[in-house]
Computed example of a mutant assay.
Amino acid sequence: MRPVLVIGNRNYSSWSLRPWIFLRHYGVDFDEIRLPLETATFGERIAEFSPSRRVPVLIHGERRIWESLAICEYAGDTFPGVRAWPSDPAARAEARSVACEMHAGFGALRREMPMNCRARNRKVTPSDAARLDIRRVIDIWQGARARFGRQGPWLFGEFGIADAMYAPVAVRFLTYGVAPRDRAGEWMHAVIDHPAMAEWAAAAREEPEVIEDEEVG
């Protein structure tokens, strides 16, 4: 049965982007339902699909998977050819560690630099906490590529969940003018230039909704 991915606004929903780009990269054929965030009908509509009442959620037959990391892992377990994690144990352990770190952390970066695919040249003055988050993210990208990603553009060799989890941060850095160098910068531009990312960004530019709280800088 063809899966369905329920997402929020492309322009703002970083959690929706993560499984979407992962599924697209591996050519998983899925339908899509877009529910604009912060509208009068969002709560009622998302309750039809997700017990958490949040996007994204993947519907596959009778199964509902309602969290970005879980959706990506489910895809790796279910759809042929999808490579979720590196095969090397050391690389796999680090990939899982940094993916979970992204999932649970970087609160200052999220708050002060919300994802906004349409925006460019936004100016913000990051707090000390956000600066620490930025430095940590760049260190993660640089270190993973130095240790495990030398043979290609991705963090751990082949595109995987770790790349998908950090893809929205690449968009944030582009929006707010953060420009990593060396291997970290190469990874960021590989994400921005990914055909699936270009497709997502083009659709984001066509969305009519504006969420004022997300328009920072």
Rank of each mutant, 00 (worst) to 15 (best):
G177N: 05
D128H: 11
R181C: 15
M165W: 12
I134C: 00
I134Y: 02
I161S: 04
L174E: 07
G177L: 08
W187I: 01
A184R: 00
T125R: 08
A184M: 04
R150F: 13
L132N: 03
V124W: 02
A167V: 01
I134A: 01
G105Q: 06
D139W: 00
K123I: 15
R147P: 05
V191K: 06
E112L: 01
G107H: 11
A108T: 03
D139C: 01
R110W: 11
R150H: 15
D128Q: 14
R122T: 11
E112A: 11
D128G: 14
R145Y: 11
P153S: 15
P114I: 03
A162Y: 10
K123D: 13
P153H: 09
I138P: 00
A190I: 06
Y166D: 08
A108I: 05
R150A: 14
Y176K: 00
C117V: 15
A129I: 04
N116P: 07
R120M: 14
L174C: 14
G107E: 03
A108E: 00
D182K: 07
R110G: 06
R131A: 01
F159C: 08
R147V: 08
N121G: 12
T125V: 10
G105E: 02
E112V: 02
F173E: 03
T175D: 07
Q151W: 05
R172A: 07
F159M: 02
G160F: 15
F159I: 02
N116L: 08
A179S: 15
F156N: 05
G149V: 13
W154E: 02
D139T: 06
A167T: 06
Q142M: 13
R120N: 10
A184W: 06
A170C: 09
R135Y: 09
R118P: 04
M165S: 10
Y166F: 15
Y176D: 01
V178Y: 02
R145N: 11
M188L: 11
R150T: 15
V124C: 04
W141H: 06
A146Q: 13
V178N: 00
L174S: 11
R120D: 12
R183C: 07
